[in-house]
């Protein structure tokens, strides 16, 4: 089962580049968008991430950082990110494979990949919105933007 709103987001410590690791707890005090996707290089993932690459300003204006995450290795992420000119980190949920995806309840045991899933996490590390998309469908950015709006308006 995908983790639902008001659940504390499980922390993780994963490679973002070949020599740098990122923890969710590094982002305390900021909102985080976690975008799980099945695989680097596959067509829908690329379109989805290419779309988010264009919307980083809107995410950042709403006080949120975007993290992509899949079971691919840090080296695949590096090549993928350079080729597509992504301006946000891709995390390698690679060893033990899919452990973080399992904790968030969106691991696909049959395919050995993460499902396509989105989480918006607030400044205190609590999941405020989550969405499981059909693997073959690019969920767009509207759900994320609505969730961030709700968080930001709720505070005002």
């Amino acid at each position: 089962m995908i983790l639902t709103p008001n659940t504390p987001a499980p922390d993780f410590d994963l490679y973002a580049t070949p020599d740098q690791r990122l923890k969710l707890s590094d982002f305390k005090g900021k909102k985080v968008i976690l975008s799980f996707y099945p695989a680097d290089w596959s067509p829908v993932c690329s379109d989805q991430l290419a779309l988010y690459n264009e919307t980083l300003n809107m995410f950042r204006n709403a006080g949120a950082e975007l993290l992509g995450i899949s079971v691919d290795s840090k080296w695949s992420h590096l090549a993928f990110s350079q080729e597509r000119k992504f301006h946000f980190p891709l995390l390698a949920d690679f060893e033990p494979k899919g452990e973080v995806a399992k904790q968030y309840g969106i691991y696909n045991n049959d395919g050995g990949e993460a499902h396509r899933a989105l989480f918006v996490i607030d400044e205190k590390g609590i999941i405020q919105w989550s969405y499981l998309s059909p693997d073959g469908i690019n969920p767009g950015a509207d759900g994320i933007l609505d969730a961030l709006d709700q968080l930001n308006n709720g505070k005002n």
């Binding site: 779309l51 919307t55 767009g140 933007l145």
Partner: peptide, 12 residues
């Protein structure tokens, strides 16, 4: 235009 599209669910 772009932002209105995004908020309407344009994904490509």
């Amino acid at each position: 235009d772009f932002e209105g599209g995004l908020r309407s669910g344009v994904n490509g």
